[in-house]
Design a protein around this nucleic acid. Structure first.
Length: 513
RNA sequence: CGGGGAGUGGCGCAGCCCGGUAGCGCAUCUGCUUUGGGAGCAGAGGGUCGCAGGUUCGAAUCCUGUCUCCCCGACCA
């Protein structure tokens, strides 16, 4: 039993799902909107998303990809062109059928029957079709290739069951769409995007992931192959945190994306698409959150340092605020992780203690509580969010001279970033189990009532078609899914526990969000 | 979409079975005291009980419909 009085009322180990919701609520990241499956993203949550956008956008542009923007509405006819794609998305699309309302029975507004659209519009669930139509116009020659585009947008998928950030009806994302002369060029681009996600997740989000290829049954509708990054949450479940697809020529044939090659012959382009969404924020919460709320890695924290003046509502406040502002000014002149340090002086009236717990729950990396004595002595009192409690179970404050603190602040932020990654990486590595050599052993492993069941690494024979369906069915009974085959998986020895055939590659099996 | 639970001041809840015009805790505001670490006391303000119908002299409470949320399942790049 711990004497620590945590900031949240629910502990991870008691009820992970409830804990997750409490973090989102208490950290003021998002709230319900009253519209099914849709959330309001509040300033702290949106600020994290803006950081993700900025850092990822820099990487996307550095890879030579250009941003553009396509319409929210897609003519329904565009979807009918790629059969597998329609099949995969048809059941979860929002459809616009009218463009005007009139007063109906009892004064309620109803769609005006006179204002019915000739052709219904789909609210985009993803933009392959509409971007494909544009590429068909934009591409004529091999000189136009590769064409590398990306858009930041919202999309809508009418999911049956929604969870904040993890699966919402509307979500925010980026979707990259590229066209190439041949398979090799497209595969290279698809893998470049995958590596971008892997590197971004680990460096910026401090979230260890495994990049690899999804099995056939988990492919994006219409894709030839689908790759993902998979992150391990603190309850041991897997979260698909980014996907990259090689689409072959299927979408090109559907949309007429053709080019004339050097020999003057018409060829279909090989295309890719890749996306990462606000789901990453759910991943951040379940990777770094603790029993006191969120812990935001400094790279994506809207405010890296929050200064709380201990205001007394008397005539000493002015001098205290001036002292805090001096600290802010010297801090913002520093660079951490290659950018200016982001600092907030929280000048709102109220007790520093109350504001402290609010910022602890939000997960600001460094919290400074500055009182009159600190100002008089030229000191600062700091609290590191990733080392919140001392051995006595009290908030782990440390005092240091102002100049010394300022000189080391950037390094400390970088250390927090590194520490969060190390902590997550250690948990990730510790919860990947190897050596399970039969279906019964797999069943036993997940039957145990473990808090962190983790993932199982297996060698399998890469079954396809009906054989794969049989495996998926077996796994489903254990509530398990095949996550991916890690990149660079070398040929493996042994026998596939599902098919009994010689194993050819590694896979990860886990429960998943 | 199937099964279960829930919607009552900003937040968390009681009241509902057995209809009689709304209560508690936290938060907020005011005052006093206190205050280098998640303050105390006293007082005050704030809700047509998710929404729409129905039954009734009277509905938070009973009935019907509907929306939203949570859990389990189905579904899901």
């Amino acid at each position: 039993m711990s004497a620590i009085r945590h900031a949240l009322s629910t502990k991870r180990e008691d009820d992970f799902a409830l804990w997750y919701q409490e973090v989102i609520s208490e950290a003021e990241m998002a709230e319900e909107s009253g519209v099914r499956g849709c959330m309001v993203i509040k300033p702290w949550g949106y600020g994290i998303w803006e950081r993700i956008q900025r850092l990822m956008d820099d990487r996307i542009k550095a890879a030579g990809v250009e941003n553009c923007y396509f319409p929210l509405f897609i003519p329904i006819g565009y979807f009918a062109k790629e059969a597998e794609h329609v099949e995969g998305f048809a059941k979860e699309m929002a459809v616009v059928t009218h463009h005007r309302l009139i007063a109906g029975e009892g004064g309620a507004l109803v769609p005006d029957p006179e204002a019915k659209l000739e052709e219904p519009l789909i609210v985009r669930p993803t933009s392959e079709t509409v971007i494909g139509a544009a590429m068909a116009r934009w591409i004529q020659s091999w000189r136009d290739l590769p064409m590398l585009t990306n858009q930041w947008a919202n999309v809508v998928r009418w999911e049956m069951r929604t969870r904040m950030f993890l699966r919402t009806s509307e979500f925010l994302w980026q979707e990259g769409h590229t066209a190439h002369t041949d398979r090799e060029g497209a595969m290279e681009e698809m893998l470049r995007a995958l590596e971008l996600y892997r590197s971004f997740a680990e460096a910026e989000l401090a979230m260890p992931v495994i990049a690899g290829e999804k099995p056939e049954n988990e492919r994006f509708p219409g894709a030839v192959s689908t790759y993902s990054i998979e992150a391990m949450m603190q309850d041991g479940k897997a979260l698909q945190a980014g996907t990259s697809h090689y689409l072959g020529t299927g979408f090109s044939k559907a949309a007429g994306i053709q080019y004339q090659d050097k020999d003057g012959a018409q060829q279909f382009c090989h295309t890719t698409s890749w996306g990462a969404s606000t789901r990453l924020i759910g991943g951040l919460i379940m990777t770094h959150g603790d029993d006191d709320g969120m812990r935001v890695p400094p790279q994506v924290a809207p405010h890296q340092v929050v200064i709380l003046p201990m205001l007394r509502d008397n005539d000493e406040d002015e001098a205290l605020l001036a002292y805090c502002d001096e600290i802010r000014c010297t801090l913002v002149a520093q660079h951490a992780c290659g950018e200016r340090v982001r600092v907030l002086v929280d000048k709102r009236p109220g007790k520093a203690t109350q504001k402290r717990w609010a910022w602890v729950k939000k997960g600001a990396p460094l919290i400074l509580e500055i009182g009159g004595r600190d100002a008089a002595a030229g000191q600062v009192t700091t609290l590191r969010r990733d080392r919140l409690w001392n051995e006595q179970g009290k908030p782990n404050f440390s005092a240091s001279a102002r100049d010394k603190f300022v000189a080391l602040a950037a390094a400390e932020l970088e250390d927090i970033q590194t520490s969060l990654f190390k902590e997550a990486k250690a948990r990730h590595d510790a919860n990947i189990v190897r050596g399970i050599d039969s279906l019964d052993a797999l069943s036993d492993f997940y039957a145990e009532d473990k808090h962190y069941p983790g993932w199982v690494e297996l060698a399998w024979s890469r079954p396809m078609g009906d054989e794969l369906e049989a495996v998926v069915k077996q796994l489903k009974e254990l509530k398990l899914t095949v996550r991916n085959t890690p990149m660079g998986s070398k040929p493996v020895a042994g026998t596939c526990i599902f098919t009994g055939k010689p194993a050819v590659e590694l896979i990860y099996v886990a429960r998943a969000y």
